[in-house]
Protein backbone atom coordinates (compact mmCIF):
# COMPACT_ATOMS: atom_id res chain seq x y z
CA UNK A 1 0.00 0.00 0.00
CA UNK A 2 1.26 3.46 -0.83
CA UNK A 3 2.70 5.32 2.14
CA UNK A 4 2.33 8.77 0.58
CA UNK A 5 -0.55 10.87 1.91
CA UNK A 6 -3.20 11.68 -0.70
CA UNK A 7 -3.11 15.16 -2.21
CA UNK A 8 -5.52 16.97 -4.47
CA UNK A 9 -4.27 19.89 -6.52
CA UNK A 10 -5.48 21.93 -9.43
CA UNK A 11 -3.65 21.65 -12.73
CA UNK A 12 -1.72 24.91 -12.25
CA UNK A 13 0.02 23.44 -9.20
CA UNK A 14 1.49 20.37 -10.91
CA UNK A 15 5.25 19.96 -10.61
CA UNK A 16 7.31 19.75 -13.80
CA UNK A 17 8.03 16.08 -13.06
CA UNK A 18 4.32 15.37 -12.60
CA UNK A 19 3.46 17.26 -15.78
CA UNK A 20 5.98 15.22 -17.79
CA UNK A 21 4.71 11.93 -16.34
CA UNK A 22 1.05 12.76 -16.86
CA UNK A 23 1.34 14.46 -20.26
CA UNK A 24 0.98 11.28 -22.38
CA UNK A 25 -2.15 10.21 -20.48
CA UNK A 26 -3.74 13.66 -20.68
CA UNK A 27 -2.97 13.99 -24.40
CA UNK A 28 -4.25 10.49 -25.23
CA UNK A 29 -7.43 10.95 -23.19
CA UNK A 30 -8.18 14.24 -24.96
CA UNK A 31 -7.43 12.65 -28.35
CA UNK A 32 -9.69 9.64 -27.75
CA UNK A 33 -12.66 11.79 -26.75
CA UNK A 34 -12.01 14.33 -29.49
CA UNK A 35 -11.46 11.87 -32.34
CA UNK A 36 -14.00 9.19 -31.46
CA UNK A 37 -16.77 11.34 -29.97
CA UNK A 38 -16.02 14.87 -31.16
CA UNK A 39 -16.01 15.99 -27.51
CA UNK A 40 -13.58 18.52 -26.12
CA UNK A 41 -12.61 17.51 -22.59
CA UNK A 42 -10.47 19.41 -20.11
CA UNK A 43 -8.27 18.38 -17.20
CA UNK A 44 -9.58 20.06 -14.05
CA UNK A 45 -7.63 18.41 -11.23
CA UNK A 46 -5.24 15.71 -10.12
CA UNK A 47 -5.42 13.52 -7.03
CA UNK A 48 -2.30 11.66 -6.00
CA UNK A 49 -2.22 8.43 -4.02
CA UNK A 50 -5.76 8.53 -2.65
CA UNK A 51 -6.80 4.93 -2.08
CA UNK A 52 -10.28 6.11 -1.10
CA UNK A 53 -10.86 8.36 -4.09
CA UNK A 54 -14.48 8.39 -5.21
CA UNK A 55 -15.10 6.88 -8.61
CA UNK A 56 -18.03 7.35 -10.92
CA UNK A 57 -20.72 4.79 -11.72
CA UNK A 58 -18.90 2.77 -14.39
CA UNK A 59 -15.20 1.95 -14.45
CA UNK A 60 -13.22 0.39 -17.27
CA UNK A 61 -10.01 -1.26 -16.11
CA UNK A 62 -7.05 -2.33 -18.22
CA UNK A 63 -3.80 -3.90 -17.06
CA UNK A 64 -0.28 -2.99 -18.15
CA UNK A 65 2.42 -5.63 -17.96
CA UNK A 66 6.05 -6.07 -18.95
CA UNK A 67 8.67 -3.41 -18.30
CA UNK A 68 5.96 -1.22 -16.72
CA UNK A 69 3.34 -2.85 -14.52
CA UNK A 70 0.04 -1.46 -13.33
CA UNK A 71 -3.48 -0.50 -14.29
CA UNK A 72 -5.39 2.29 -15.98
CA UNK A 73 -8.96 2.98 -14.91
CA UNK A 74 -11.46 5.13 -16.78
CA UNK A 75 -14.39 5.99 -14.53
CA UNK A 76 -17.47 7.75 -15.91
CA UNK A 77 -20.90 8.80 -14.72
CA UNK A 78 -23.85 6.95 -16.24
CA UNK A 79 -24.82 10.09 -18.23
CA UNK A 80 -21.37 10.27 -19.78
CA UNK A 81 -21.45 6.58 -20.73
CA UNK A 82 -24.93 6.90 -22.23
CA UNK A 83 -23.96 10.02 -24.24
CA UNK A 84 -20.81 8.29 -25.54
CA UNK A 85 -22.76 5.18 -26.54
CA UNK A 86 -25.32 7.41 -28.28
CA UNK A 87 -22.53 9.05 -30.28
CA UNK A 88 -21.15 5.65 -31.28
CA UNK A 89 -24.49 4.06 -32.14
CA UNK A 90 -26.27 7.04 -33.65
CA UNK A 91 -29.25 6.43 -31.36
CA UNK A 92 -29.62 6.55 -27.57
CA UNK A 93 -29.56 3.24 -25.69
CA UNK A 94 -32.58 2.76 -23.42
CA UNK A 95 -30.49 1.89 -20.37
CA UNK A 96 -27.01 0.82 -19.30
CA UNK A 97 -26.92 -2.21 -21.57
CA UNK A 98 -24.12 -4.25 -23.16
CA UNK A 99 -23.44 -1.49 -25.71
CA UNK A 100 -22.90 1.06 -22.93
CA UNK A 101 -20.62 -1.31 -21.01
CA UNK A 102 -18.71 -1.99 -24.24
CA UNK A 103 -18.40 1.74 -24.86
CA UNK A 104 -16.65 2.25 -21.52
CA UNK A 105 -14.42 -0.77 -22.19
CA UNK A 106 -13.44 0.43 -25.65
CA UNK A 107 -12.69 3.98 -24.49
CA UNK A 108 -10.50 2.48 -21.74
CA UNK A 109 -8.78 0.27 -24.30
CA UNK A 110 -8.02 3.21 -26.57
CA UNK A 111 -6.75 5.48 -23.78
CA UNK A 112 -4.60 2.67 -22.36
CA UNK A 113 -3.28 1.54 -25.73
CA UNK A 114 -2.44 4.96 -27.08
CA UNK A 115 -0.90 6.07 -23.75
CA UNK A 116 1.30 3.00 -23.77
CA UNK A 117 2.52 3.86 -27.25
CA UNK A 118 3.03 7.53 -26.44
CA UNK A 119 5.14 6.59 -23.40
CA UNK A 120 7.47 4.99 -25.93
CA UNK A 121 8.40 2.07 -23.73
CA UNK A 122 9.36 -1.19 -25.36
CA UNK A 123 8.11 -4.42 -23.89
CA UNK A 124 4.88 -3.08 -22.34
CA UNK A 125 1.68 -4.83 -23.26
CA UNK A 126 -1.91 -4.16 -22.34
CA UNK A 127 -4.60 -6.67 -21.48
CA UNK A 128 -8.24 -6.77 -22.45
CA UNK A 129 -10.47 -4.24 -20.66
CA UNK A 130 -13.01 -5.20 -18.02
CA UNK A 131 -15.84 -2.95 -16.81
CA UNK A 132 -17.39 -2.78 -13.35
CA UNK A 133 -20.44 -0.72 -12.44
CA UNK A 134 -22.36 0.35 -9.37
CA UNK A 135 -22.33 3.20 -6.89
CA UNK A 136 -19.35 3.18 -4.54
CA UNK A 137 -17.50 0.34 -6.23
CA UNK A 138 -13.82 0.00 -5.37
CA UNK A 139 -10.77 -0.89 -7.42
CA UNK A 140 -7.77 -2.42 -5.66
CA UNK A 141 -4.30 -1.70 -6.99
CA UNK A 142 -0.97 -3.38 -6.37
CA UNK A 143 0.44 -2.59 -2.92
CA UNK A 144 3.06 0.14 -3.35
CA UNK A 145 1.60 1.43 -6.61
CA UNK A 146 1.95 5.13 -7.33
CA UNK A 147 -1.55 6.36 -8.18
CA UNK A 148 -2.50 9.50 -10.09
CA UNK A 149 -6.19 10.24 -10.68
CA UNK A 150 -6.79 12.75 -13.48
CA UNK A 151 -10.11 14.56 -13.16
CA UNK A 152 -11.67 15.66 -16.44
CA UNK A 153 -14.77 17.58 -17.40
CA UNK A 154 -16.65 16.65 -20.57
CA UNK A 155 -19.70 18.26 -22.22
CA UNK A 156 -21.81 15.48 -20.64
CA UNK A 157 -20.32 15.35 -17.16
CA UNK A 158 -17.19 14.53 -15.20
CA UNK A 159 -14.96 11.49 -15.53
CA UNK A 160 -11.59 10.36 -14.24
CA UNK A 161 -8.59 8.50 -15.61
CA UNK A 162 -6.55 6.77 -12.93
CA UNK A 163 -3.05 5.45 -13.49
CA UNK A 164 -1.57 3.08 -10.91
CA UNK A 165 1.99 2.00 -11.64
CA UNK A 166 4.54 0.04 -9.68
CA UNK A 167 8.30 0.34 -9.96
CA UNK A 168 8.43 3.96 -11.11
CA UNK A 169 10.58 6.67 -9.55
Amino acid sequence: MSTTAPTQINTQELSEKQKRFLAPFVKCTKDVFSMMLNWEVSLVGVVTNDLNAVRHHLSGIIGLSGSMRGSLVLSVEQEVALAAATAFLGAPPENVNADVIDTVGELTNMIGGSSKDRLGLDGVSIGLPTVVCGEGHTVNFDPGAHIEMLQFQSPHGPFTVEIALTGIG
Binding site: D31, M36, M110
Partner: peptide, 26 residues
Protein backbone atom coordinates in the same frame (compact mmCIF):
# COMPACT_ATOMS: atom_id res chain seq x y z
CA UNK B 1 -6.00 -1.45 -33.50
CA UNK B 2 -4.57 0.60 -30.63
CA UNK B 3 -1.17 -1.02 -31.30
CA UNK B 4 0.82 1.78 -32.92
CA UNK B 5 4.44 1.10 -32.07
CA UNK B 6 6.72 0.85 -35.08
CA UNK B 7 7.71 -2.75 -34.37
CA UNK B 8 4.10 -3.86 -34.24
CA UNK B 9 3.18 -2.09 -37.47
CA UNK B 10 6.16 -3.77 -39.16
CA UNK B 11 5.12 -7.15 -37.75
CA UNK B 12 1.61 -6.67 -39.13
CA UNK B 13 2.91 -5.66 -42.56
CA UNK B 14 5.25 -8.65 -42.60
CA UNK B 15 2.32 -10.91 -41.69
CA UNK B 16 0.46 -9.55 -44.71
CA UNK B 17 -1.97 -6.79 -43.70
CA UNK B 18 -3.09 -4.62 -46.59
CA UNK B 19 -3.62 -1.50 -44.50
CA UNK B 20 -3.44 -0.32 -40.92
CA UNK B 21 -5.68 2.06 -38.94
CA UNK B 22 -4.76 3.14 -35.44
CA UNK B 23 -7.42 3.67 -32.75
CA UNK B 24 -8.52 6.29 -31.88
CA UNK B 25 -9.55 7.40 -35.35
CA UNK B 26 -11.90 9.95 -36.82
Amino acid sequence: TTEAQKGQVIAAIQAGVSDYLTKPFE
